[in-house]
Every structure is written in C-alpha cells, then in structure tokens.
Design a binder for these strands. Structure first.
Lengths: 394, 394
DNA sequence: GTGCTTGTTTTCGCCTCTGAACTAAGATGA
DNA sequence: TCATCTTAGTTCAGAGGCGAAAACAAGCAC
C-alpha cells in the first residue's frame, strides 16, 4: 500500500545522481568504468554525470590505476572538502559540538559542561550556536560551506520543523529546540534522538556497516534501540519507535524510573545493575560496573539473562540480520560476556530467526552520538545532492 | 543506506502506471480529472495512460457524473474481471481454496478437511492443485485469466522461490511447498505465513485500511503479528519478523509449547487462557472461552493485563498509528474487554507513543487468511501491471 | 609507427513528461 | 435555435533523460 508517487523525467536524473554519489562515497576511489558496473547505469550516463559532479566540485579526481594494455582508469572520489557537517551531542552533563568533513573526519570540536540540575533549553541552544561558531573558526571553515547541523538529543523528538522534544528525565517537555536554534542560524537543521543518531553512526561507519535489516541497541544510563529496516532508520508514526528500554520483560516487575514496572531498563540499565548488586555509587559508574563484573556476583549472570531476554524479543519480532550492542555499558558488558549474552539470547528466541542473526559489539565510542548527528546531514546530502552549490574549497 | 538502484526512463512509465492503477483501485470509480488531482500527474499523461489501460481492458468505463455546466466526467474503474486471484488457507484442520476477482469478491471456494494428525505435504499440495481446478471450473474461469496463486501457511516461510516452510507445531520442517506446487501449475505463486496474509487482508480491506504504520495482531491458537512499515509488511531478513507470540513478557515464566518460558502466547493463547482458568476443553474452544469470559474469573482480568503488556511492548518498540486485534480469540476478547485492554496497554507504555496509537478490533472473519493470500497476487498486480496481458473476459 | 586493448566521450534515436492549444460535450438564456 | 460559457479530455511540440554504438583517447607490445 506504499505510495511513492513519483513522477517526471527529471526525477530520474536526481535519483541516478544519488545512486552514483552513494557508490562513489561508499566504494572509495572508483573509476567511471567501475561505476557503470556498480550502479547498472550506462557508461554514457556515468560519463556525463561525473562530468557534472566534477564541474560542481562535489567529486574530484584521485589518481589513476595502472593498466596492462589499455587506457588507464581515472579514479574519482567525493571531495571531502566540498562541504562540512556539524554534529551536536546534547547529553546529561555536556553539550558537544563537532565539525566533520564529508568523509566524517572530525575537524574541530568543543565541549560545554552542563550542571546536571540545569537543562535550560535557551542555554543549550546558546551553547550549540556558539559552538558552531567556535568549530567553524577553529577549522577555518566558512558558514557557506556547511551543509547542515545535526543534533542528537535525549528523549522523543516530534516529527516536524520545530524539533519539539519530550524528555522526562532531562526535564524537557515540549521544548522546541529546532525553533530555538533557527533563531540563530539559517543552516539546515536535523534534530533526532541521540540513541538513533548513535545507531546511525554504527550503521554507517561502525559494526553495522552494510546491514540492511539491523538493530543497534544502546545500553547506558538509559536503554534504547535503533531499528533499521531496509537500510533506513525506522521511526514509526511519531518518531518514537525503538523505545526498547521500556518494553516489559517481567510483567509487574521491578519499578522503573519511567513510572512503569518490569521494564528492561529496570534490569540492565546501569543504575539498575548497580542497585541490584547493592553497590552505592561514589560517582564513577564505569568503575562501579567494572567492580560488579569482577565480583562474580550472581547479579552478573542475571543481567546477562535479562539482556538475553530483551535481545531475544528483538530477534523474534524484528528478525534482524545483525544486532549491534553499543553504549558504554553494552560494550563493557559485552567485552567479557558476549558469549553468554549470545547463549541467553538463543535460549529465549526461536531457532530460525536466531540463526539468521549475528550479535556483535559496537565499534564506536561515546563520540558516536555527535558523529551520527552529522551523518544525518551526510544522508541528506547523498540522497538529494543539490545542483549548483558553490564552494570556496578546492 | 537504502539503495533503490533505479534507472531508465521506462521505469517512470511503469511507476506512474502503478500509481494511477492504485488510485483507480482504491478510489473506486473516478474520472480522469480526479485522477490528475489525486496522482499529481498531468492531464496529458493521465489521458494517454488511461487510454492504454482501457485498450488493455484493465480499466473500464463506469458511467458518467452529471455536470452543471460543462462536459460531464467519465468515470473509470479497474475491470474486476480483468483477472482473478486464487487465495489458499492451509490450516490445522483444513485446506481452503478461494477464487477472487480483482475486487476481491469471492467467486468460488472449496474446502478439504485434514486429519489433524496427518499433514502430509504431498497431500496438501494435491488438495491445493485440485482445489484450484475446482474453483476455476465452478466459476467458469479459465487458467489464463488467473494472475496468480497466493498461499497462507502456518509457520515461517523462507524467502526464495521454493517456498520452504518451517512449522514445528504443524509437523513441517523444511517442506518446499512452493516447489511441490510448481510441479502442477505454471501460475505465479506467492507463499506466505498465514498470520501475515491475514494481516494483509485487515490492512487492505479491514480495520487497518489506510494505515501506513500499523501492527495487526492475531490471537488464536497461536499468537502472531504483522508489522506494517510504510504501508508494506515488514519481513525482516529471513521473513520471520512478527513472531510476537514468543516474545517474553515474564522472564522465566510459564512454559510455552515452543519450548521456551514466559512467552506471551503462554498467557494469552487460547490453550493458555483455558489452562489458567482450569477449564478442561470438550473440544469447542469458542464456547469454552465464552464460558471463561462469563465467569468473571480473575483469569479474565489477568489475561487483559498480559495482553496489555504485550501490546504496550509493540507500542513502545514500533510506535504504530494503529493496532488491529484480530483472530477469533482476539475478537472474542475484544468485544467485551476492549476498554480494559486499552487501559492495560496505556498503563504499560510510554505516553507519547500510546497517544499516537489507536487500538481497534479486526473486521474480517476467519476467511481473511485466504483473502489475504489472494491479496498477495493483487499487490503484485498493482505494483507491476504487465503490459499487454490478454483476457477473454469483457 | 602499427596494431591491440581498454577506458571515456560523443552522437543519435527513442522514450517520457508537461504546458498549451485544441476538441468534445454539456448547460444557459435570449 | 443558437451563440456563449463551462468543464473534461486529447493532441502536439518541446525539453530532458537514458542507452547503444560509434568515435576518440591513451596506454602496451612489437
């Protein structure tokens, strides 16, 4: 029942341009000849289209491949300096702003501390806007070269231009962060949930690379998931899909900070783990968790089991080809316990879908939220590469 | 990261043709004029394309609309007799074969009883093939007029041409039903899980009509779900997505016939409900369930709670705009308990996604499996209407 | 230099869409 | 009855797109 409603002959060009650009981006330096094979387009089309892209400076030459008896291939690649993307990570304790080139190499970054008590939206918006100025001037990049600003935030982001955010634990209820930012910049804005931007980062550049049906789970203070269907983040009708942490695994079980009972987060969130282990934190959760893991407490085994149940539910319901376990808690658990997690998942899922899934650890660190946010800009660029964008960079 | 890989100028025609045909199909009799508005195509394109479709007999005229001062509009509609679809329901106790015209009106049907003990694949295949012959001759339709055969079966259907089926409770493990059928017919075959075909039916013609993000749950002997993303059934990497019945809602809870513990099906499947209520069935489960519902047993309230937990997990994870409760158990429960089910769901889900979801009862009876199977054929027809198919029907 | 091989560009024909002009078919009212 | 108005549907010219094949480019081998 999907209705794509596509239309005219110009759409073909746009679509094929996007296909070509993606192929160039993900296959690294490639010759026109390879591109014809990879995209299925004719040599003629590849030729004219690459000529356009070269003319617009979106693509640049990148050397040649030696031949053994014929004209050598000229390699092409996306110009990493054609444009830049800003990625922002809004978290409990800090606002981080990073500037990335098109290859997602970080060119500059800046951090602002937030006092955990105060999450004044105006303040956050000011931090972001001034952060953008700082990274641009640090990297010597002018605003015209910036393709957009991606922002990863806690909580649920309403679809729509104002980027309205609902984040109970953050103290935000209906904060129109997008609108606040637009008062200070005219650059394209992309606001999304931080777990989703992180998922996006793992999907594009981390352990999820190449998967088209996947789930990237985030275990940290909160617990969330990014569901990837057909290569794209699945958002549901109001962009809140993936609230895995508050699915129930024990009807009427432990109370959760969301107000419900028996949520997965109430068993495998960091606070829940420490609480169940009877640890009173002195502030360094990573150390605390390491202590619990080293202690051989039965809580460890239980945690693995609960996590296995949660993952198994994803396996049964979503049938992904890959599950990536990310977030600092996830990685810390996974480093020593991955085989057990796999066993627990297998024990609680159906054989066929479990056999089709591989469970792996995330590869990207905590910076992945900002990277993923910048990736929102990249995604837009690859999907709808504007014609005739002018850049100073060579 | 989705890569559509689309290409040439002919694809436009195909795509627009599909758009037009869908508009015609779902908007009932429509004038060319309306079609231009509805599809966004130009009047010129609509004109030439409808001329093609009329010439191929896919579309027929359907009267006029009176005008008040201008040329009257000629109404067009899809020719319900252009072609026919066979829908097959393979169930525990019977094989049902139905013949449907393009409007999904049932033209003929035939049932074969299966002894519950014997589910010999060869026998089932023979029943299907002879059933096709029977319904065709009953309805006076020739095989050339049949666009395809859709089959809904229990269990997991591997993707691929052979239609390999894994259905533990049915006694089938790796049965290549598609291959068996292809020995006896050259018509296009579409084999899918019965819960999914039923979901498809509710989505296209029942309570799910028009929803683009939805979940259709099936409560019967088994418990399953069809997840609809962007208007299309979501299948996951190996077509087993939607195994909601075996997601865990009570870690280490009641044993389930799948071998696991704490599955949703072990609480809200019909056998589980009767078992928990202490009812020893004398064979008529519908009557037994009615008895339990009338008894005001606490099991009823518990069942509602467990179902609410299961639904809430879908709300949180999938964020659908609509949840349709189908299957005979679902409908029987829902008729008296829907408000309670909604409350239980609300109590266990996050506020934002719950607010975006409406929970309704299915509208189609048990024949929906066969109808949905036929809909697989219809879907293919609407997506890729072959050019120059010749039919005898006028 | 001549032929051979392979990569890239150009030419040409065909296809699709759209906008605009045109035709069709009714109502209205003198 | 018939000129005029209104709306529906068709035809046509023009622009833009793609692919096949011819042409061109750039290397190797002898």
């Amino acid at each position: 029942m999907a209705r794509p409603q596509r239309r005219t002959v110009r759409d073909i060009r746009r679509g094929n341009r996007a296909v070509l650009l993606r192929a160039l981006y993900f296959s690294g330096p490639t010759s026109r000849n390879d591109l014809t094979a990879r995209t299925g387009l004719s040599a003629a089309t590849v030729s004219t289209m690459t000529a356009d892209l070269l003319g617009e400076n979106i693509v640049v030459e990148a050397g040649q491949v030696e031949s053994d008896g014929g004209r050598p291939r000229v390699l092409l690649r996306v110009n990493p300096e054609y444009g830049f993307a800003v990625g922002v990570d809004v978290a409990e304790t800090h606002v981080r702003v990073g500037l990335f080139d098109l290859e997602m190499t970080e060119r500059a970054k800046v951090d602002y501390m937030l006092r955990p008590a105060r999450h004044d939206p105006e303040l956050v918006a000011r931090h972001i806007l001034s952060g953008v100025e700082v990274v641009l001037s640090d990297a010597g990049v002018s605003p015209e070269q910036v393709l957009g600003i991606g922002v990863g935030v806690p909580g649920i982001v309403e679809p729509g231009a104002d980027g309205v955010i609902h984040a109970k634990t953050f103290g935000w209820d209906g904060v129109p962060l997008g609108a606040l930012l637009r008062r200070g910049t005219s650059l394209p804005l992309y606001v999304d949930n931080g777990a989703k931007t992180m998922g996006q980062a793992e999907l594009w550049f981390g352990s999820g690379r190449g998967a088209s049906e996947a789930v990237i789970v985030l275990l940290g203070v909160g617990v969330g998931a990014t569901i990837v269907a057909d290569g794209t983040t699945f958002r549901g009708v109001s962009s809140s899909a993936g609230e895995w942490g508050h699915t129930k695994i024990v009807a009427n079980g432990r109370p959760c900070r969301c107000g419900g009972r028996g949520c997965l987060e109430a068993y495998v969130g960091i606070e829940a783990i420490l609480d169940r282990a009877g640890v009173t934190s002195r502030g360094d959760w990573e150390e605390d968790l390491a202590g619990v893991l080293a202690s051989k407490s039965p809580v460890v085994e239980e945690t693995v089991t609960y996590l296995g149940v949660g993952l198994a539910n994803l396996v049964n319901l979503i049938n992904p080809e890959k599950i990536v376990i990310g977030g600092w808690v996830g990685v810390q658990l996974g480093e020593s316990l991955l085989p057990g997690i796999r066993r627990a998942t297998a024990a609680n899922s159906l054989a066929e879908p479990y056999a089709a899934t591989s469970i792996v650890l995330g590869r990207l660190g905590p910076d992945a939220v900002a990277l993923g946010a910048a990736t929102l800009v990249l995604e837009e660029f690859l999907n709808a590469p504007q014609v005739a964008r002018i850049t100073a960079a060579g």
